[in-house]
């Protein structure tokens, strides 16, 4: 019974943590972007403008929640829920520190991949159900982008799995006690980071919602809290990708002097800031460039990385 209560408490803790982190992230992003673009950013509401997010949230809650009459109401309604559900479910398998984590299953990597591939439905169905040509184009782009980048997202993780000999995220973290995976699996790390960005359709890969060509892409017709769910879902997605990269490639909670949980959050925070810097500095590629780059560069790189990792592992194991 105690076991059950403990994991329930952790689950609630993770949920609350994510939901406080995501709005904080919106503020952080706006401030950091402003810093890098040589302007102030939100600085009026509260100290350093930190309550700006709160004010925006109150505003968005009271906005009219409008469903267009030409939309497919049922699908329009469930689409924003899917992204929140899948992203939050993914947090269940992430080990924050030894003994702290919601689930400890032996197919953790696959669970994460499954949830991220289900997340594609949110954007695709949102775009389809809006019954608007710009939304439809956004949804089409999202479908092909996420399907393509999913392939080598999985492939790039297989090197890590082969090194740890397990799909369990805890064992993967423990296998990195000596050396972080970012050194022997550098190409896997690069491919995974790019694929992760594309999966979360985050700038520079926010082609499904490219506002300069498609109004707002797949969420053009969304307003009020339904739009808010897409929006917050994207930020929770950034937290997720940072946490997953920390787990797979940066040794999770391992590190000297500081307690394990502090290390985990520190590494995660570095990646979150890095993703914001990417947004501040990189332009959006054209859609065909994105696809060509994915299939002709990232996929071969991921396969090569996997093959070399496998060969080295076999050679080393034969030596013993």
């Amino acid at each position: 019974m105690f076991e059950l209560n403990w994991s329930a408490l952790i689950a609630i803790g993770v949920l609350l943590g994510v939901f406080t982190l995501a709005p904080g992230l919106i503020w952080l992003e706006r401030r950091l972007l402003a810093l890098w673009q040589d302007r102030y950013g939100p600085n009026r509401v509260g100290p350093f403008g930190i309550f700006q997010v709160l004010a925006d949230m109150i505003k968005i809650f009271f906005k009219e929640d409008w469903i267009p009459p030409f939309a497919d109401k049922f699908v329009f309604f469930i689409a924003p829920g899917i992204i929140m559900l899948t992203v939050l479910m993914s947090f269940a398998v992430i080990p924050v520190a030894p003994g702290v984590g919601v689930m400890d299953i032996n197919v953790g990597v696959l669970f994460f991949l499954a949830m991220s591939s289900l997340g594609a439905y949110s954007v695709v169905l949102g775009g389809w159900s809006s019954n608007n040509k710009y939304s439809l184009l956004g949804g089409l782009r999202a479908a092909s982008q996420m399907i393509s980048y999913e392939v080598f997202m999985g492939l790039s993780l297989l090197g890590v799995v082969a090194m740890a000999g397990s799909f369990n995220l805890r064992e993967i973290v423990n296998a990195q006690a000596g050396m972080w995976n970012i050194v022997p699996q550098f190409f896997g790390f690069v491919v995974f980071m790019v694929a992760g960005l594309a999966e979360m359709h985050r700038i520079p890969f926010d082609i499904p919602e490219a506002e300069s060509e498609l109004v707002a892409g797949f969420h053009s017709e969304y307003s009020g809290m339904k739009f808010g769910m897409f929006f917050v879902g994207e930020y929770v997605g950034i937290v997720l990708i940072s946490a997953v990269i920390t787990t797979f490639f940066l040794g999770g909670w391992h590190g000297p002097f500081l307690p394990p949980m502090v290390w985990f959050f520190l590494k995660m925070f570095v990646f979150i800031c890095f993703f914001i810097l990417l947004r501040a500095s990189l332009p959006r590629p054209r859609f065909d460039q994105l696809m060509t780059w994915g299939w002709k560069l990232m996929l071969p790189l991921a396969i090569l990385n996997l093959a070399v990792t496998g060969a080295v592992l076999v050679a080393v194991n034969q030596g013993h």
Partner: peptide, 16 residues
Amino acid sequence: IIYAGAIMVLFVFVMM
């Protein structure tokens, strides 16, 4: 991953 996440997304893609 494969059926619900990839093949069905392709189906939806074609529908769209």
